[in-house]
Protein backbone atom coordinates (compact mmCIF):
# COMPACT_ATOMS: atom_id res chain seq x y z
CA UNK A 1 0.00 0.00 0.00
CA UNK A 2 1.22 3.56 -0.62
CA UNK A 3 3.29 4.69 2.36
CA UNK A 4 4.11 1.19 3.62
CA UNK A 5 7.78 0.56 4.44
CA UNK A 6 9.25 -2.12 2.18
CA UNK A 7 12.87 -1.91 3.39
CA UNK A 8 14.53 -0.23 6.34
CA UNK A 9 17.31 0.81 3.97
CA UNK A 10 17.36 2.75 0.71
CA UNK A 11 16.68 0.59 -2.36
CA UNK A 12 16.14 1.59 -5.97
CA UNK A 13 13.15 -0.12 -7.53
CA UNK A 14 10.03 0.63 -9.51
CA UNK A 15 6.89 1.86 -7.75
CA UNK A 16 8.78 2.88 -4.61
CA UNK A 17 10.59 5.88 -3.17
CA UNK A 18 13.24 6.55 -0.56
CA UNK A 19 12.77 8.95 2.32
CA UNK A 20 14.94 9.30 5.46
CA UNK A 21 16.89 6.18 4.61
CA UNK A 22 13.85 3.92 4.18
CA UNK A 23 12.15 2.53 1.09
CA UNK A 24 8.40 3.04 0.83
CA UNK A 25 5.75 1.71 -1.58
CA UNK A 26 3.96 4.27 -3.75
CA UNK A 27 1.29 1.94 -5.12
CA UNK A 28 -0.82 -0.98 -4.04
CA UNK A 29 1.28 -3.91 -5.14
CA UNK A 30 2.79 -7.30 -4.51
CA UNK A 31 6.44 -7.71 -3.59
CA UNK A 32 8.19 -10.26 -5.80
CA UNK A 33 11.09 -11.45 -3.64
CA UNK A 34 12.63 -13.46 -6.51
CA UNK A 35 13.07 -10.42 -8.70
CA UNK A 36 13.24 -7.98 -5.81
CA UNK A 37 10.58 -5.76 -7.34
CA UNK A 38 7.24 -4.28 -6.39
CA UNK A 39 4.58 -5.26 -8.94
CA UNK A 40 1.74 -2.74 -9.15
CA UNK A 41 -1.78 -4.17 -9.07
CA UNK A 42 -3.40 -1.13 -10.68
CA UNK A 43 -2.26 1.82 -12.69
CA UNK A 44 -1.57 3.47 -15.99
CA UNK A 45 0.83 2.17 -18.61
CA UNK A 46 4.33 3.62 -18.59
CA UNK A 47 6.07 3.11 -21.92
CA UNK A 48 9.27 1.03 -22.24
CA UNK A 49 11.38 0.56 -25.34
CA UNK A 50 10.78 -2.51 -27.53
CA UNK A 51 7.26 -3.03 -26.22
CA UNK A 52 4.54 -3.91 -28.73
CA UNK A 53 1.62 -1.50 -28.57
CA UNK A 54 -1.68 -1.01 -30.38
CA UNK A 55 -3.08 2.41 -31.20
CA UNK A 56 -5.21 4.45 -33.53
CA UNK A 57 -3.99 7.03 -36.03
CA UNK A 58 -5.43 10.37 -34.95
CA UNK A 59 -3.46 12.87 -37.00
CA UNK A 60 -1.12 12.95 -39.94
CA UNK A 61 1.11 15.58 -41.44
CA UNK A 62 3.84 14.93 -44.01
CA UNK A 63 4.19 11.25 -43.17
CA UNK A 64 4.35 12.01 -39.45
CA UNK A 65 1.49 10.31 -37.67
CA UNK A 66 0.10 10.85 -34.21
CA UNK A 67 -1.08 7.63 -32.63
CA UNK A 68 -3.53 7.42 -29.74
CA UNK A 69 -2.18 4.80 -27.36
CA UNK A 70 -4.75 5.57 -24.67
CA UNK A 71 -2.26 6.96 -22.17
CA UNK A 72 -1.32 10.39 -20.80
CA UNK A 73 1.47 11.16 -23.26
CA UNK A 74 1.81 11.36 -27.05
CA UNK A 75 2.98 8.82 -29.58
CA UNK A 76 4.52 9.58 -32.96
CA UNK A 77 5.04 7.31 -35.91
CA UNK A 78 7.36 8.61 -38.60
CA UNK A 79 6.81 7.16 -42.06
CA UNK A 80 10.01 6.44 -43.97
CA UNK A 81 10.85 6.14 -47.61
CA UNK A 82 11.43 2.42 -47.09
CA UNK A 83 7.92 2.10 -45.77
CA UNK A 84 5.53 2.93 -48.54
CA UNK A 85 2.56 2.27 -46.35
CA UNK A 86 0.41 5.31 -45.57
CA UNK A 87 -2.21 5.54 -42.87
CA UNK A 88 -5.65 7.10 -42.65
CA UNK A 89 -7.18 8.68 -39.60
CA UNK A 90 -8.87 5.96 -37.57
CA UNK A 91 -6.59 3.15 -38.78
CA UNK A 92 -5.64 0.66 -36.09
CA UNK A 93 -1.91 -0.01 -36.00
CA UNK A 94 0.42 -2.32 -34.17
CA UNK A 95 3.92 -0.93 -33.58
CA UNK A 96 6.96 -1.13 -31.35
CA UNK A 97 8.28 1.52 -28.98
CA UNK A 98 11.60 2.73 -30.40
CA UNK A 99 12.32 5.51 -27.98
CA UNK A 100 10.76 7.62 -25.23
CA UNK A 101 11.46 11.33 -24.88
CA UNK A 102 10.92 13.20 -21.61
CA UNK A 103 8.97 10.24 -20.24
CA UNK A 104 5.91 11.14 -22.26
CA UNK A 105 6.58 11.25 -26.00
CA UNK A 106 6.77 7.79 -27.49
CA UNK A 107 8.49 7.24 -30.83
CA UNK A 108 7.09 4.22 -32.67
CA UNK A 109 8.48 2.10 -35.45
CA UNK A 110 7.88 -1.24 -37.19
CA UNK A 111 4.22 -0.44 -37.77
CA UNK A 112 1.61 -2.75 -39.22
CA UNK A 113 -2.01 -1.93 -40.00
CA UNK A 114 -4.64 -4.12 -38.35
CA UNK A 115 -7.66 -4.31 -40.65
CA UNK A 116 -11.19 -4.84 -39.32
CA UNK A 117 -11.91 -6.53 -36.03
CA UNK A 118 -12.56 -4.81 -32.74
CA UNK A 119 -10.62 -3.50 -29.76
CA UNK A 120 -10.83 -4.22 -26.07
CA UNK A 121 -9.31 -2.02 -23.39
CA UNK A 122 -7.76 -3.91 -20.49
CA UNK A 123 -5.70 -2.83 -17.50
CA UNK A 124 -2.06 -2.47 -18.58
CA UNK A 125 -0.94 -4.06 -15.30
CA UNK A 126 -2.75 -7.28 -16.30
CA UNK A 127 -1.18 -7.60 -19.76
CA UNK A 128 1.61 -10.02 -18.70
CA UNK A 129 -1.01 -12.43 -17.31
CA UNK A 130 -3.19 -12.14 -20.42
CA UNK A 131 -0.19 -13.05 -22.59
CA UNK A 132 1.02 -15.73 -20.19
CA UNK A 133 4.45 -17.31 -19.83
CA UNK A 134 5.93 -17.75 -23.34
CA UNK A 135 2.56 -16.65 -24.81
CA UNK A 136 0.82 -19.78 -23.52
CA UNK A 137 -2.31 -18.06 -22.22
CA UNK A 138 -3.12 -15.99 -25.29
CA UNK A 139 -2.28 -18.85 -27.65
CA UNK A 140 -4.69 -21.08 -25.78
CA UNK A 141 -7.49 -18.52 -26.16
CA UNK A 142 -6.72 -17.90 -29.83
CA UNK A 143 -6.63 -21.57 -30.76
CA UNK A 144 -9.91 -22.48 -29.09
CA UNK A 145 -11.90 -19.38 -30.13
CA UNK A 146 -10.33 -19.27 -33.62
CA UNK A 147 -9.88 -15.52 -33.11
CA UNK A 148 -6.91 -13.52 -34.25
CA UNK A 149 -5.70 -11.77 -31.10
CA UNK A 150 -2.90 -9.26 -30.58
CA UNK A 151 -2.26 -7.85 -27.12
CA UNK A 152 -0.69 -4.40 -26.87
CA UNK A 153 1.35 -3.68 -23.75
CA UNK A 154 -0.50 -0.37 -23.48
CA UNK A 155 -3.66 -2.29 -22.56
CA UNK A 156 -5.33 -2.44 -25.96
CA UNK A 157 -6.22 -5.82 -27.41
CA UNK A 158 -7.16 -6.36 -31.05
CA UNK A 159 -9.50 -9.24 -31.91
CA UNK A 160 -10.74 -10.41 -35.28
CA UNK A 161 -12.83 -13.36 -36.41
CA UNK A 162 -13.86 -16.48 -34.55
CA UNK A 163 -15.78 -16.36 -31.31
CA UNK A 164 -14.89 -12.84 -30.18
CA UNK A 165 -17.52 -12.89 -27.42
CA UNK A 166 -15.91 -15.94 -25.83
CA UNK A 167 -12.36 -14.60 -26.25
CA UNK A 168 -13.51 -11.35 -24.60
CA UNK A 169 -15.04 -13.29 -21.74
CA UNK A 170 -11.78 -15.20 -21.19
CA UNK A 171 -9.67 -12.01 -21.27
CA UNK A 172 -11.97 -10.27 -18.79
CA UNK A 173 -11.72 -13.27 -16.48
CA UNK A 174 -7.91 -13.13 -16.59
CA UNK A 175 -8.05 -9.41 -15.85
CA UNK A 176 -10.25 -10.00 -12.78
CA UNK A 177 -8.30 -12.97 -11.47
CA UNK A 178 -4.77 -12.04 -12.54
CA UNK A 179 -3.42 -12.19 -8.98
CA UNK A 180 -4.58 -15.76 -8.32
CA UNK A 181 -2.95 -19.10 -9.08
CA UNK A 182 -4.21 -21.92 -11.28
CA UNK A 183 -5.52 -19.42 -13.77
CA UNK A 184 -4.41 -21.20 -16.95
CA UNK A 185 -6.41 -24.28 -16.00
CA UNK A 186 -9.52 -22.25 -15.16
CA UNK A 187 -9.36 -20.38 -18.46
CA UNK A 188 -9.01 -23.67 -20.33
CA UNK A 189 -12.07 -25.00 -18.52
CA UNK A 190 -14.05 -21.87 -19.39
CA UNK A 191 -13.07 -22.07 -23.04
CA UNK A 192 -13.80 -25.80 -23.31
CA UNK A 193 -17.24 -25.61 -21.77
CA UNK A 194 -18.39 -22.41 -23.44
CA UNK A 195 -17.11 -22.86 -26.95
CA UNK A 196 -19.50 -23.43 -29.83
CA UNK A 197 -20.58 -27.06 -29.70
CA UNK A 198 -19.55 -27.22 -26.03
CA UNK A 199 -21.99 -28.27 -23.37
CA UNK A 200 -22.85 -24.86 -22.12
CA UNK A 201 -22.86 -22.21 -24.80
CA UNK A 202 -23.32 -18.74 -23.49
CA UNK A 203 -22.24 -15.33 -24.61
CA UNK A 204 -20.63 -12.81 -22.29
Amino acid sequence: MPGDVIFDKPMRMDNSYVENGKTYAEVMGLFDSEKGSLVALEGAWSPRTDEVVIGIITNSRNQVYEVDLSFYGRAILIGSKYDRQTYKLGDVVQAEVKDIENRKTVILWRPRTLYGGTLLDVKATKVPRIIGKANTMIMQIASITKSNIIVGNNGIVWLKGGDIALATMAIRKIEDEAHTSGLTERIKKLLDTRQVGGTNKEIA
Binding site: M1, P2, A44
Partner: peptide
Protein backbone atom coordinates in the same frame (compact mmCIF):
# COMPACT_ATOMS: atom_id res chain seq x y z
CA UNK B 1 -6.51 7.24 -6.07
CA UNK B 2 -4.88 4.05 -4.76
CA UNK B 3 -7.52 2.01 -6.61
CA UNK B 4 -6.52 3.86 -9.79
CA UNK B 5 -2.87 2.94 -9.18
CA UNK B 6 -1.79 6.58 -8.92
CA UNK B 7 1.72 6.77 -7.44
CA UNK B 8 1.52 8.31 -3.96
CA UNK B 9 3.82 8.77 -1.01
CA UNK B 10 1.06 7.80 1.35
CA UNK B 11 -2.56 6.79 1.76
Amino acid sequence: LANAGIHMKDL
